[in-house]
Design a protein around this nucleic acid. Structure first.
Lengths: 116, 116
DNA sequence: GCGTTAGTACGACGTCTAACGTACTACGAA
DNA sequence: TTCGTAGTACGTTAGACGTCGTACTAACGC
């Protein structure tokens, strides 16, 4: 009965990733946070570990935007769906961009925490 | 009769510039193009030199988004309004970010031109 | 003053977006 | 097989966005 352990998940090919799309995906604070956390973890993370202050359906939405823009890769693992950054693709297309954004993200967090 | 040569132009202070706002400003192809051109020019440029494929009012809109997010600085010079990147502020807040985006922008242009 | 040039303000329009709730499916465990 | 967990699909809502046109203002040069 078609036990598709791998339900299909659409990912853009490397050449279809667009800078404007990536920047748009990163321009939302919630998604920036997700990317920031993903960058610090070696393992692919389940969506559930983020505990975002929004509903489940909104969480799904944000992960989809990240995936469809080419920022993250997602795969089903059992009942969970795990996500990880597409570092290799992003670094090949836009060297230094992801690191620049992640560093900026860390610096801003520190700056805003220092001046509340 | 109040010949304010300097009509007031709102710019965010350095500390009010937000990463998400900057990324959002850069996530539009038209604005990315503007920033790309500004980065290659030493002099501040008038809005008119860009010759964007949109109406004057839309052009005004895009420059305003860039200014209000802290990406560019604008000033009146005679009848023109000249714009330049806020490199110093952006590099202080998010070192490497602007360069990363600009380089990514150049690389993508070259890549897309090669495969039409 | 008059016209030209450069940009603004405002209102309108259709589209996109972020958020929600509810109802559903897929997998693993009891 | 039944239940719980994790996430999807769908429909909706309110607001933001990109675009336009028209009417306006400010500075310059004649």
């Amino acid at each position: 009965m078609t036990t598709r352990t791998t339900r299909s998940l659409e990912h853009p090919a490397r050449d279809d990733i667009r800078l404007a799309g990536v920047l748009h995906a990163l321009s939302d604070p919630m998604r920036l946070h997700i990317v920031h956390v993903l960058a610090e973890e070696a393992e692919a993370q389940s969506c559930a570990v983020f505990d975002l202050p929004v509903s489940k359906s909104t969480t799904t939405h944000h992960f989809r935007v990240l995936r469809e823009s080419g920022v993250i890769h997602q795969a089903y693992r059992g009942t969970a769906k795990v996500s990880c950054l597409r570092r290799e693709d992003l670094d090949a297309l836009f060297p230094g961009l992801l690191d620049g954004v992640l560093r900026a993200c860390s610096l801003e967090s520190a700056r805003l925490a220092g001046r509340p």
